[in-house]
Design a binder for these strands. Structure first.
Lengths: 189, 189, 189, 189
DNA sequence: CATGAATGAGGCTTCATTCAT
DNA sequence: AATGAATGAAGCCTCATTCAT
């Protein structure tokens, strides 16, 4: 599924590549959608756990943020997060199963929180409330870039330089954060 | 197709919604993939033409870059570039039809060049050669963010604030460009 | 058609390999069956003309028969008679177009007559009427073998030794003819 | 299939006439070709078993050969060996499925061996080695005639007199065998 | 817990043919 | 004399799913 998309992957293909007969697959997972949901959740949890380990000490906040970004990007090369491919496929396919959509948001939310935490520490000097606000804006930005990188890597793996992008993102986040902090506070954002 | 995904959209559905019988569709476009490629190319050319108009004068380089970014992002909301969805789909599906792959790269290359041109003007003071190098790095970054935004918008349209992201990208690009220019020149990059 | 059978050969395939658009094909030949009939007749006439040339003098009757057989078999290798493939295909496909069936019988009849003529000369000593009777029986036998050889050649071209078969057929025909002539005359055959 | 030809027989027609839905047919036989192969093998084995029974005692070798030929030919009328039609079809269609080609050769080889055995006994007086050689040549001849008869019967059933052809083949084989035995032995043939 | 067998619906594509130009 | 465009019907095959064992 993560290689060809949800609709394009038949149960019988999964059966062939796993050895289990289709009826057994239906015994374990209620339906095609159910199978998908299980697989995605599993892969996502593994990836997130990986990230969470990466933000442990030591170092100052900016260094920790950098390490987190490098870690996130490097998994794209080492062990591409299948769940991300699936997630992107599913969002593009406009799947309308609410369970699935919810699961997707949850994963996104949870990995976003890791970023927010790291960013809050960086912008701590602005005061807790403001730092959180700024961190959240920055996190959105970082997540978008992250997903974009994943796609770029799919399109043309050899042109992609994750290390460079991680360091550019680092620069960008600091600049954006600083910029946000110097603007007049808008409470509505 | 742009609504349900490539694999999930049957030719018969297209036939029904267009009024043409399937055999006529097959006469005009050689196959399902061929249909897709045609549609994508058409939509892409329109989008690119739109962007190209957005970088015309007036204003200084930095302003023009800003306008370009806003213009690009704003279309995501107003008139979502179907070609982007298709393009991303196809890249993830790892289609190996060389014609399609070529078409994809062409579109990507061409929209990238618009960004590069705008960025070159911004960094002109560094000298033509260096400016081009920096502009290209920045363009990669911008493209990745752009694609990421598209996906983010698919997953969670309400949380997305394109205007904000455009301005953040603006800030980020200037910071990244400046950062690159102050580093010791590496010719091999 | 002679390579894949009637039903398996599409008009569009013929169009592609001939350069003419399908509509032009339909202008020249009224239908698929009409095209088939034309092609077959043409190829058959050429082959028969070839055979007819082979039975010209010189030599005694037995020698002329031998030359005829060798000639017939040798074309299987040199220039396989496409009409034969077609004819066999069509007879196996149980085509029920009466025009076609008639055309097939005509061809068969005409090439049979060549054989009969050669055989009559060989058995002339038995008297004209008897010789003709014997010759006709022998011709049936020879035609059957001939068609069988064609098929055998299709199945396993390298195992087939046409020269050998031609000489065996020669021996066989003389033996059968002699055998028939020594039996009590049955007028009803 | 044996009535209308391979290409002209749709799976849906088979489905209709058998009661099974097409998907069930595809579950039992992997493909149209697979179905064909199965059917052919089954029919062939039955026919061969029939022949094998026909060569049992009593009688001298020449009589036994005659009985075998009559038996073989008579099935053409009584219960036409559908496998033969299919087999010929497939050989002419130049199918390149190796499984099918193998199956075809196997059937041909096996029915050929029956003939060889019967012929060996007839020519036994020439010594085992020579008899085998002669028998094999004769068998090729007989097989070709046999296949040719089948086709002739398709083209023009009423003109065909199998009994006559069987007895002619008998005469022919004895003549050819004798002829071969009186020639100087060529070891390389 | 596992699986072989079954199936209706629908997948993409090609068919032979027509017709306006 | 020729052809680009069009089309309904049919082609082979795979789909997700069920169920008796």
């Amino acid at each position: 599924m993560s290689e060809r998309g949800y609709a394009a992957t038949g149960i019988s293909a999964i059966s062939k590549s796993s050895g289990l007969p289709t009826s057994s697959i239906y015994w374990h997972f209620e339906s095609k959608q159910g199978l998908l949901a299980s697989v995605m959740e599993r892969s996502a949890l593994r990836w997130i756990a990986d990230l969470e380990r990466a933000q442990d000490p030591p170092g100052n906040p900016a260094e920790r943020l950098g390490r987190l970004l490098v870690r996130g990007f490097s998994t794209f090369e080492e062990r591409p997060p299948e769940f991300l491919r699936l997630a992107i496929f599913l969002s593009l396919e406009r799947s309308d199963d609410p369970k699935l959509v919810e699961s997707l948001r949850r994963v996104r939310e949870r990995s976003g929180r890791i970023l927010v935490t790291a960013l809050e520490a960086v912008f701590a000097e602005a005061g807790a409330a403001r730092a959180r606000q700024v961190a959240e804006e920055c996190a959105h930005f970082a997540m978008a870039l992250c997903e974009g990188c994943f796609i770029g890597h799919q399109i043309d793996p050899e042109q992609f330089d994750f290390e460079m992008l991680a360091s550019q993102l680092h620069v960008a986040l600091l600049a954006i954060g600083t910029d946000l902090m110097t603007r007049p506070t808008e409470m509505s954002a």
